[in-house]
Amino acid sequence: MIRLVDLSKTYQLGDQPVKALDQVDLAIEAGEYLSVMGPSGSGKSTLLNMIGLLDTPDSGRYFLAGREMNALNEEARAAERNRRIGFVFQAYHLLERLSARENIELPLVLAGMAPAERRPMVDQIIKRLDLDSRASHLPRQLSGGQRQRVAIARAVIRKPALLLADEPTGNLDSHSGAEVIALLEELNNQGITLLVVTHDPAIGQRAARRLRMEDGRIIDDSGATQPPSADSRHAHR
């Protein structure tokens, strides 16, 4: 489903070039559950942003669902993000002035869906994530765990194939963190491809496939559940 070939990205920090991604090769099959771990600054977020079409590589190629993404312009990438990719961030990134319900609805609004069409979809996800009693609350009236649940609802409202979570439990206590992870895993069980960046080894260990990054490279890959990724693992050893 996802294939990265020789992907590199260099940032300029002052006059110091930083290789955030250094010739990364990676293949991910649909429905996989991956965790990405590694020291701070090793390029985990950059990798996630690259896969999420938020960032553009300097070199290398990226295939998503068999299509080459490098060729797309900015507007087409936005459309791909809306349709295929859900993001969950450490800082939730909810709009403070909108209710939980309105936040969840945003991707549908951006897609231009009619209110009558949106309503049942939002109702359904709110019910499913157990947010009924909180739907009309503003984010500041919610606990951290509830906020992250709202953010997850927003991420999956469009039924994307891919869910990218960048340290989703970073701001949460261990109890709500565990709840959030359980929710993400439940979504994965229902078929969504899940990538979780985390600092927490306990969480990282739960994933079927575990990546380790350092200095912009994937230095360890616990093994793809499917054959193609085995090649990429050896290529970097």
Binding site: L54, E74, E75, A78, R81, R83, F89, H93, L110
Partner: peptide
Amino acid sequence: LLRALGATRRQ
């Protein structure tokens, strides 16, 4: 965030 959710530059 809006861009991540799929808002285009035009939007």
